[in-house]
Amino acid sequence: MEMALTNKKNFNEGGYSAPEEKYKIRKRKASPGDIAFHICNGIFMILFVVITLYPVLNTLAISLNDGTDALRGGIYLIPRKFSLKNYATVLQKDNLMIGAVVTVARTLIGTALALITNAILAFIVSRKNFIFAKQLSLFWVITMYVNGGMIPIFLLYKGLGLTNSFAVYVIPGMVSAFNMLVIRTYMRGIPDSLEESAQLDGAGYTTIFLHIISPLCKPVYATVALFVAVGQWNSWFDAMLYNRMSDNLTTLQYELMKLLSSVTNQSSSVEAMKNSSGSVTPMSVRAAATIITMLPIICIYPFLQQYFVSGLTLGGVKE
């Protein structure tokens, strides 16, 4: 337990805690230069925040606005003619709903598989007296720098029967050298004495992994899980390349991409679908689909900040 606490403390130090606390210099009168600097800095930061947030908020406003009305332009942050019709339309589109189910499934299964395998691999290569630890580590680090490229990989998956299957989303990318290194670095920080005393009590490696090391690694597991989950949630290229023919294996992002290309290609011949409760256009429907797609991530990431900050700092370590 004490171990876990010290680790956590290290992470916070290496993370994003405010540095000014450390070097609070004697208060001296702010020079005109300093004041000018702070004003410019403040303006820069406000601009930065506006440019970052505006497009997202604007999409939100359009998604909540009547479709035909939105085509007139002039919608910024607040919907002019409020309507939930866009969301209703999205929820009625079968392919989007299938995409959502597949995306949720691949995110959950893919993250679980990746976390389990990377954790086991990291555990193996971080055992100091394991005879093949070095070789196995090198074997995986090489894969970070050399890969076969798109065509050989495509043909391999085809040969293995992974095309037009759900497995192509979760099996091939399961083990990643980068994620393994992040976990390995963390595990190396855990004192050997814990493992040694467990060994004296007769614990095998399985017990040590499950009951001694893993409970201490929760923070780094969370980091890697977040990295993998975001990657799974956002990927679309594999759906396009390997599962193009299987409509029931489409993903949310891939469906969104099809919506985008239909909007950009047919913007001149926009056909608004009218009915009693208002109208929708491809543009407004896409805005609603975009918001639905980004919502889960936006809701989750602020609470996981400390994890990805520490994970990124760990990832920057030398091999």
Binding site: I62, V230, S235, L260, T264, T293, M294
Partner: peptide, 19 residues
């Protein structure tokens, strides 16, 4: 706020750019 765009897919980002 500054992390937010990192978590969006390129599909979403290009959609936003188009708009």
């Amino acid at each position: 706020i500054s992390y937010l765009p990192h978590f969006l897919s390129w599909i979403i980002v290009t959609g936003i750019l188009h708009d």
